[in-house]
């Protein structure tokens, strides 16, 4: 496998084992490439290792063996501080439970990654406000999360994931905590952002959500079972 310029993520022979009173193999020799601008879904039952894969690519965790390269940076060899920087600038997370800072306003939440990336206050605010209007929340900038609906919170989280203009957006069950209509709107937003050139990796256990991607990676018992091409299958 050659590392071409348009490969955003390269997962190369990655294993991850946990010691929980006995070794648990969460991932076993998994390899996967994500090219720039691609939209990939990872499907599998709970405990299949899909979340572990996402955590490894996102730099939240390190593999037991193998290599994870994100946008040219070897996450598996990075120090803790370097991984923090990779999480901040190369990756944007969207979580099932939104994970917004409860006491920060929408605009401050969106600007939070920029704080750790060393942006000054005025530029942070400007960038965050423009991202909020991009996700349709221009009139909610100064609301704290508890004053927003589930769908609005997830939009704030998406705007936050975009704030440092990352190479990759990682979404972990992004529609799991919202109703069907709101979930569809969020997936529509993902489509728009994908169309604008963003690279997506989405973890889900729902078939209809996974089908919004270009391809579906089926994971089971720590192995990739199959990669299904659904390109053009979108509505």
């Amino acid at each position: 496998m050659s590392e071409s310029a348009n490969t955003t993520v390269r997962v190369d022979g990655v294993s991850k084992q946990y010691d929980l009173g006995g070794t648990v193999m969460a991932l076993d020799d998994v390899s996967l490439d994500l090219s720039a601008g691609s939209y990939t879904a990872v499907m599998g039952p709970s405990g299949s290792g899909k979340s572990t894969l996402l955590n490894l690519i996102g730099g939240l965790d390190t593999p037991s063996s193998g290599r994870v390269v994100v946008n040219g940076q070897d996450v598996s060899a990075a120090s803790e501080a370097e991984r923090a920087d990779i999480r901040g600038t190369e990756v944007g997370f969207v979580f099932q439970t939104f994970n917004l800072m409860p006491r920060l306003s929408a605009v401050e939440n969106v600007a939070l990654p920029l704080v750790f990336d060393g942006w000054d206050r005025d530029r942070r605010r400007e960038r965050a406000a423009s991202l909020l209007s991009e996700v349709g929340l221009a009139d909610r900038t100064d609301h704290v999360p508890s004053e927003l609906s589930g769908g609005q919170r997830q939009r704030v989280a998406i705007a936050r994931a975009l704030s440092t203009d990352p190479a990759l957006i990682l979404a972990d069950e992004p529609t799991g905590n919202v109703d069907t209509d709101t979930g569809a709107q969020i997936l529509d937003l993902f489509d728009d952002l994908h169309a604008a050139g963003n690279t997506f990796l989405l973890v889900t256990h729902e078939r209809h959500v996974a089908e919004r991607a270009e391809r579906i990676v089926h994971v089971e018992d720590g192995h990739i079972q199959s990669i299904e091409d659904v390109s053009g299958g979108q509505h």
């Binding site: 996102g58 939240l60 803790e80 501080a81 923090a84 920087d85 999480r87 901040g88 600038t89 997370f93 979580f95 994970n99 917004l100 800072m101 409860p102 939070l112 990654p113 750790f116 990336d117 936050r160 440092t164």
Partner: peptide, 16 residues
Amino acid sequence: TREIGIMKAVGARNRD
């Protein structure tokens, strides 16, 4: 704890 996790996920280093 959860806020710490959020901060770390969006790029906070330990010293932040």
